[in-house]
């Protein structure tokens, strides 16, 4: 069955996204924006070299990003590989910070549906309340939307009460029209959140891609009343980039979407930049990386 793509005008999207990047966020707005962005972070480590120790450090930081500034909120979640879910769950118990796990053969998704479902079940059983799955780009790019949808539905079922974030890996989608289409497909198949990227591809959460996904979520909400979240992941590593994301959300979906329940930023190095910029607002001097722990 041939696909029908809703047209998206690349130049127009990028103009609008760039224009929103020129909003001037100063003083109190910047302070509040940094706090808000902090609260939306899925603090992430997805390295082959990850250890229980590293994950425990990360969890501590997610709960209390800067001990010297208790007014800074906790991050939304810690995101790890399935094998470290148990460690994270133990470290975060009672903190209000969620445990998220990538699953489904992250980042390539090149495993069988059975493996994907089993991996999801295991992660949930180990304490993950959020699952970040990748769509099968092979199926999607072949035009096999049905397989993509079936996988999402199966993983969603395996999630049980856990929230499902569906990663589109937008860098591997040919056009914005495909970003839009894949977003709609994931939402229809049951995604609670649509997410840009694995962080392992050539590019990640570009402002244009995030804008298109936010527009899909807005249209879906207007049509059905159902709330779907968006997660920008990959490449959002500076305060400026994070505030740009918040502006995109605010001016596309409105203030109601500016909560960690509805918008997330997947990041590892972003948090330190937020902390550094926040300290600058307080102290009036520019900071240095050494002042903040690496994990």
């Amino acid at each position: 069955m041939s696909r029908s793509l809703t047209p998206v005008n690349r130049v127009g999207v990028e103009e609008r996204a760039a224009a929103l990047g020129r909003r001037s966020i100063k003083t109190t707005a910047k302070r509040e924006g940094i706090r808000l962005a902090t609260s939306m972070i899925d603090l992430t480590t997805l390295e082959g070299s990850d250890t229980p120790g590293k994950v425990r450090h990360l969890c501590a930081k997610a709960v209390c990003p800067d001990p010297s500034r208790p007014e800074l909120p906790s991050c939304a979640a810690v995101c790890v590989y399935p094998s470290l879910v148990g460690v994270a769950a133990a470290a975060l118990e009672g903190s209000g910070v969620a445990v998220a796990s990538v699953a489904t053969g992250f980042p390539a998704g090149q495993t069988s549906l059975k493996v994907k479902v089993d991996e999801t079940r295991e992660a949930v059983a180990a304490g993950a309340s959020e699952i970040d799955m990748v769509i099968s780009r092979d199926a999607y790019l072949r035009g096999d939307d049905r397989t993509v949808a079936r996988e999402i539905e199966a993983v969603k079922e395996a999630c049980g009460s856990a929230h499902l974030k569906v990663i589109l890996e937008t860098a591997e989608l040919p056009t914005y029209a495909h970003v839009r289409h894949a977003s709609e497909l994931a939402i229809a198949a049951g995604a609670d959140v649509i997410k840009t990227s694995t962080g392992k591809a050539s590019s990640g959460a570009t402002p244009g891609v995030v804008l298109v996904m936010l527009e899909v979520v807005r249209d879906h909400f207007e049509r059905t009343g159902r709330v779907v979240g968006v997660k920008a992941a990959g490449g959002v590593s500076t305060t400026k980039a994070a505030l740009h994301m918040l502006v995109l959300v605010k001016e596309t979906l409105g203030d109601e979407w500016l909560t960690p329940d509805r918008f997330r930023i997947g990041a590892s190095s972003l948090l330190n930049d937020l902390l550094m910029q926040y300290a600058k607002l307080d102290g009036g001097h520019y900071g240095r990386a050494e002042d903040f722990s690496k994990e």
Binding site: S24, I25, A29, E32, L36, S39, V63, S74, G96, D255
Partner: peptide, 16 residues
């Protein structure tokens, strides 16, 4: 603890 603070956050642009 953290969740309470999160809900209190509102965001608008300061005069620039």
């Amino acid at each position: 603890m953290a969740t309470v603070e999160r809900a209190a956050l509102r965001w608008d642009y300061a005069p620039a």
